[in-house]
Write a protein that binds this DNA or RNA. Structure first.
Ligand SMILES: [Mn+2]
Ligand SMILES: [Mn+2]
Ligand SMILES: [Zn+2]
Ligand SMILES: [Zn+2]
Lengths: 170, 170
DNA sequence: GGTGTGAATGAGACTCATTCTCACTAACGT
DNA sequence: ACGTTAGTGAGAATGAGTCTCATTCACACC
């Protein structure tokens, strides 16, 4: 059951925070490598760099944002590798309303959560809901899906509105 | 008060179904005209046609799907009018995963609902949830939003999976 | 029942995020 | 070392959606 959870796990007492982060990062890379191997793909430096950036920013980001975080990342390779990582279940793509798609680490590698979507600047932010509510939602969706002959895989639940820096116009 | 609800409202006893549908369509057009006037826009035949198609199909559709429903609809005018109707709160755009955006009548003109999203063919289907659950979700999202300095406007909740005609590959 | 003003239309040019192509390189197995 | 396969990156291509602009339409006022 060693799948690492969120990179922001609380550190054990007496351990420096940086050390704990390094540990979770090591675990993350191991988990990613396993998933890639399962699909007969290699964990190359370019892919490692993408995963590392996504883990560090800990919020959904666009490709330009990833590129800005560390330069010299060829666009075509980046998009290709994001696609590979997506097919291997390492990251997920959020297609939303913004002009660029957003990317984040996929669900088994980070824990289940949802997003605050700014309708003004298009930024995304993670938000976690109570497990009980999640269970209720899943139960009722499953029931509705069954009635429609629909086979569910997962749900998405976003809150749209104005982020901290984007006050609504009056 | 008088805002028309879903086009699929139960007809009164002794009334033919088609008659009731005509009535709700008349109400819908009146409501749309009001919204357009409020923004100093005219309810032209092209716009009326878009609204009529969206009301008839009663599920989110792409522009190619709209065009196929009745030919001779210039692409540039259609997109422009969809944008106008969106700004006036008549329709809403669903940017999702599919290559084309989907469009549907906006929330005050039809009642609040969510979507079953087929990850295979990209089709969308409406699904309605219990009001109690909706209230719970809104309450908890509002609380989380406040903690993040986020001003919410509305939520979206989709169930992803395989639709009736797209059995998952084994 | 003309006439002026601004909105609407439609054909096509254009944008630009993403994907594709292809020649080249790096890694793995034997 | 060698053959085979995966990965890389520069640039071309794709295509949904938007923009331009000349023309037409609808309304208001006279
Ligand atoms: Mn959830
Ligand atoms: Mn809801
Ligand atoms: Zn914002
Ligand atoms: Zn399907």
């Amino acid at each position: 059951m060693g799948a690492p959870t969120s990179p922001s796990s609380r550190s054990a007492p007496g351990r420096r925070q940086a050390e704990a982060d390094d540990d979770t990062m090591v675990d993350l890379h191991a988990a990613v490598a396993r998933r890639l191997e399962r699909h007969d793909h290699r964990y190359t430096p370019g892919r490692r760099h993408l995963v590392e950036t996504l883990a560090r920013v800990a919020r959904p980001v666009t490709l330009p944002q990833i590129s800005s975080h560390s330069d010299e990342l060829p666009q075509s390779s980046a998009y290709r590798n994001l696609e590979v990582l997506e097919r291997c279940g390492v990251i997920s793509r959020i297609a939303g309303s913004a002009d660029h798609a957003h990317f984040e680490l996929a669900e088994p590698l980070v824990d289940h959560h949802h997003h605050l979507v700014c309708v003004s600047c298009g930024s995304l932010q993670d938000v976690h809901l109570d497990d009980e509510l999640e269970a209720l939602v899943d139960a009722e969706l499953a029931q509705a899906a069954a009635a429609a002959g629909f086979t569910p895989t997962n749900h998405s639940l976003d809150l749209h509105g104005y982020c901290h820096n984007c006050e609504p116009d009056r």
